[in-house]
């Protein structure tokens, strides 16, 4: 329960846009090509399917210290394959990221310390070998940052983060 339940990101320069797009080949390329062409600075881009098989959902995090989020939104609208764009920074929303972290385990002492960290963060242990543990964590970016920082002293072997996904409340 440590840092959880923080709904909105504390970082005011991170702006969340959600784009619903046609689930067709090449659409991701059109979106990423737009960012490159307009020199937009994007922190993360997460893409997945929705309950409608013809629609994909992209969550885009824009660093507004470098890029005007309103211009990103307006340019996204110009793409024929973009169905809708929502700006989730203006409304209450749940923002989440998932991470997998493989940590080095030196000995049993360290193993039990790592388990304590996992419990504290309400993370899960999803794989274990004699010299490593894989941790799965879902939360906002700050929470993911924090657990990574905590686990660093044991020796992190590998990290993967999904990038932010988001949904408006209500």
């Amino acid at each position: 329960m440590l840092i959880d339940r923080i709904e909105a990101s504390k970082n005011p320069t991170k702006h969340t846009l959600v784009a619903l797009v046609e689930n067709e080949p090449g659409v991701l390329n059109r979106v990423s090509s737009l960012f490159r062409r307009r020199n937009f600075n994007i922190d993360s881009l997460a893409v997945g399917t929705t309950n409608d098989p013809t629609v994909s959902r992209m969550t885009i995090v824009v660093d507004t210290s470098k890029t005007n989020a309103a211009l990103v939104e307006r340019n996204l609208y110009k793409l024929v394959n973009v169905i809708d764009v929502q700006d989730l920074s203006a409304v209450p929303a749940v923002l989440r990221e998932m991470a997998l972290i493989k940590v080095h385990v030196a000995d049993n002492q360290k193993r039990s310390e790592i388990k304590q960290v996992i419990d504290l963060f309400e993370a899960q242990m999803v794989d274990m070998t004699p010299n490593s543990i894989m941790v799965e964590l879902t939360g906002n970016e700050e929470k993911v940052d924090s657990i990574i920082k905590m686990l660093e002293e044991y020796g992190i072997k590998e990290v993967v983060r999904t990038g932010r996904i988001a949904m408006a409340r209500g």
């Binding site: 005007n68 307006r74 110009k78």
Partner: peptide, 8 residues
Amino acid sequence: IDPSEIGK
């Protein structure tokens, strides 16, 4: 008519 031109 192009929203991306306004404020560009």
